[in-house]
Measured scan of single mutants.
Amino acid sequence: NQASVVANQLIPINTALTLVMMRSEVVTPVGIPAEDIPRLVGMQVNRAVPLGTTLMPDMVKGYA
């Protein structure tokens, strides 16, 4: 099963992502693939992302 990117903490709206904010986990539904974590660093979320939430492509500005 493919691992997805999951929020390791509450990520406030418009926050630029850092490695410490994300972890990989096998979840359903599948979100952004864990191998894209390096690409996500520095990108901003367009909404608040609660701890444990799977990051979906539409949550990250410029990802989709």
Rank of each mutant, 00 (worst) to 15 (best):
R47Y: 15
S4E: 00
A64L: 09
E35A: 13
T28N: 14
I37K: 14
I32M: 07
T54H: 08
V5S: 05
V60Y: 01
N8A: 05
L40T: 03
V30F: 10
M59S: 12
P57E: 07
Q44I: 08
G52V: 01
A34N: 14
E35T: 15
M22C: 02
M22N: 00
P50T: 11
N14T: 07
I13Y: 04
N1C: 03
Q2D: 06
N1E: 13
I37P: 01
V6E: 03
I11R: 00
R47H: 06
Q44F: 09
P57W: 11
T18R: 04
Q9S: 08
D36I: 10
D58H: 11
T53M: 08
I13M: 09
V60L: 06
Y63H: 04
V26W: 15
G62A: 12
L51V: 09
M21A: 04
I32F: 03
V6G: 02
K61D: 06
V49I: 05
N1L: 11
T28L: 10
G42Y: 04
Q9D: 11
N14H: 10
R47K: 14
A48G: 14
M56T: 12
V27S: 04
V45P: 07
M22S: 01
Q2F: 10
L19N: 06
T54K: 07
V30W: 08
G52T: 06
V49K: 01
N46A: 02
Y63C: 01
A16T: 09
A7Q: 00
R39W: 06
E25G: 10
V30I: 14
V5P: 03
G42K: 04
A48Y: 06
V26R: 07
T15E: 15
L17K: 00
M43W: 07
G52H: 11
V27C: 02
Y63W: 09
P57M: 06
Y63M: 07
R47T: 12
E25V: 13
L40W: 02
L40K: 01
S24G: 14
N46M: 12
I32R: 00
P38S: 04
P38L: 10
V30E: 06
T18A: 03
E35Q: 08
N1P: 13
D58V: 11
A16W: 07
M43F: 08
A34P: 11
I37F: 08
T28R: 03
M43A: 05
K61G: 14
A7L: 13
V5D: 00
L10P: 08
